[in-house]
Design a protein around this nucleic acid. Structure first.
Length: 556
DNA sequence: CCGTGGACGTA
DNA sequence: CGTACGTCCACGGC
């Protein structure tokens, strides 16, 4: 039973249906209706791998107080195997049954009073496609339809397993199917639990940066005007501008004798020492960013009374497969980390992967010389020795190779890199060439990266860079997620809760007295993950791990 | 009202 | 030294 696939569906009203698979207790029975609490007890007793249609199942279970251990998320597996974002049940089902994808019934179609639901009780219509009444939500109408939906999730998962040949123990691809699925459970938990943020500390930071909380709309306008005036008093006589309008700012700068094609910060930086106007404008932008995107209204809409900042999480984006988060959780200005404070009697174990991308390159390309360099804590040092250049030069050469530089030709360091690490460079070259040709790519963990074809020379070159980047960034995301779900699972015994995933960084909230054990566990989980990734065991992955009360206290 | 692009924060 | 994402804003077409 343990680890066996079993279907599950949860209706919005909390009705749960499970469809046991395999030959265990209730195996091949027609499915059972139960409450969320009973489903939790079933999970504890049998620990199946729950086949779900999407993260929505976990969200409903969590709302009902139940967290399951593992799953096979049909949508996540579909995105992994086929690329792209679309993974609704009707679309995934059509793909699994070999039905024409352009004939998937639209869920937005006119409701026909659930007629077919009543007539047949069958989710699939005569053409084999799932009926829109079902995919639109009609599956949740009666215990019988919920049960059919759970059985269908199981069937979809089994079809995916047959098609992919994975899901049992074995290669990195099978492990990735499991971790990409289970990360959907983690996402549902991250959304439910939120990030600990101290409201008083956050409001203090905001008032220092953006001014006091406006009493009303007029007060807010006055504060904005005062902030604008600090910049505009440096403007040439008679000239003015709406600082929020890039076009007007450009005209204003031109009047001050500064001609720029756009007004982005990196372009204006060179003028900031000579022009008080530019210096004031750049300062204004920082304060404006905080007060608009991360101001009081941001706190009010996302920070709960329980001191948790909540957003939605997705397990993979549309490109290389990194996690995404809303509510600004992934792009919160670093200064605001000062307000991310662990609960009383708790700490954060903060861990970030070191030099993850070159290490991933060594692993996925199978380059033994580059793998040897990963034995160093700072792998750019052996690389620099090998190339006969200084460390900064070696680092730039490596990064340019991984991402495809647009300026210059790389010089001697780049040529030596080809001699020193031909396998790794060949891997990147192939990715670049395939992407330019418009052929789809696959990451080490098996994620399909869809490529367009044709286009202008500039688009073709951009596609080459995109392709080589996607294989590195994507594989790094897969490693990270495998690490994260391992920490999630092992950390349960310590009461350790992941509260933030930031591409190469984990924040784990845990009782103070468990801090050391949690830090050790996070390190052990990385070693375990690395073994899936480097069957030869010759690539070393490292993490900087520290226990802190406040996110800003970690060095980063 | 809605889509687009500039700008900028994070990795 | 490239890629990706989420968010807010002004702008211009409807």
């Amino acid at each position: 039973m343990r680890g066996e696939l079993a279907g599950i569906a949860v209706a919005p009203d909390g009705t749960v249906a499970i469809a046991p698979g395999g030959a265990g207790p209730g195996g091949h029975s027609p499915g059972r209706i139960m409450t969320i609490a009973e489903a939790g007890a079933y999970d504890e007793a049998f620990r199946p791998r729950w086949a779900t249609w999407s993260q929505a199942t976990a969200r409903r279970l969590i709302a009902g107080g139940v967290r399951v251990s593992t799953c096979w998320d049909v949508a996540a597996v579909h995105r992994l195997a086929h690329g792209g974002l679309r993974a609704d049940p009707g679309y995934v089902w059509a793909g699994l049954r070999g039905l024409p994808l352009d004939k998937v019934p639209a869920t937005g179609a006119e409701p026909d009073l659930f007629s077919s639901l009543e007539e047949t009780g069958e989710p699939a219509g005569a053409d084999g496609h799932l009926r829109p009444e079902w995919t639109r939500g009609g599956w949740a109408r009666t215990p019988g339809t919920v049960a059919a939906w759970a059985a269908l999730a199981l069937q979809a998962a089994e079809l995916q397993r047959q098609a992919l040949g994975g899901g049992k123990a074995g290669d990195a691809g099978a492990a990735t199917i499991r971790s990409e699925s289970t990360v959907e459970l983690l996402c549902a938990e991250l959304a439910a639990d939120g990030l600990p943020v101290d409201r008083a500390a956050a409001e203090n930071l905001l008032s220092a940066i953006a001014g006091p909380r406006p009493r009303d709309e007029r007060d807010a306008a006055a504060i904005r005007a005062r902030r604008d005036a600090v910049v505009l008093r440096h403007a040439p006589a008679g000239a003015s501008a709406d600082l929020r309008s890039p076009g007007q700012v450009r005209t204003l700068l031109a009047a001050a004798g500064i001609d720029v094609p756009d007004t982005r910060a990196h372009r204006l930086e060179e003028f900031s020492s000579s022009s008080p106007l530019v210096a004031a404008l750049l300062e204004w932008r920082k304060a404006e960013r905080i007060s608009t995107t991360y101001g009081y209204s941001w706190l009010d809409s996302h920070l709960g009374d329980d001191g948790r900042l909540r957003g939605e999480w997705t397990g993979c984006d549309g490109a290389a497969g990194r996690m995404t988060a809303s509510a600004g959780l992934h792009n919160m200005p670093a200064v605001l980390r000062r307000a991310v404070i662990a609960d009383e009697g708790h700490v954060f174990v903060r861990a970030d992967l070191g030099q993850i991308e070159p290490r991933v390159l060594a692993a996925v390309s199978g380059d033994r010389a580059l793998a040897a360099a990963t034995r160093a804590d700072d792998m750019y040092q052996p690389v620099a020795r090998e190339l006969g250049v200084d460390r900064p030069v070696a680092k730039v050469a490596m990064i340019a190779a991984m991402y495809g530089q647009t300026t210059g030709h790389g010089g001697a360091a780049a040529r030596r890199m080809r001699q020193a690490y031909p396998v790794a460079m060949g891997y990147l070259d192939r990715a670049d060439a395939e992407a330019r040709a418009g052929r789809d790519l696959r990451t080490y963990g098996g994620r399909l990266v869809r490529m367009a074809s044709g286009g202008t020379p500039a688009q073709v070159a951009g596609r080459g860079r995109y392709g080589r980047n996607a294989l590195i960034q994507g594989a790094a995301a897969e490693l990270f997620k495998m690490w994260a779900v391992t920490v999630r699972s092992r950390g349960q015994a310590l009461g350790a809760e992941i509260v933030m995933c930031l591409h190469d960084e984990l924040l784990v909230h845990v009782a103070s007295e468990k801090a050391e054990a949690a830090a050790r566990l996070v390190a052990d989980c990385l070693d375990e993950t690395a073994r899936w990734w480097t069957p030869r065991g010759n690539v070393r992955f490292i993490a900087d791990i520290a226990a802190v009360r406040c996110w800003a206290d970690a060095k980063g």
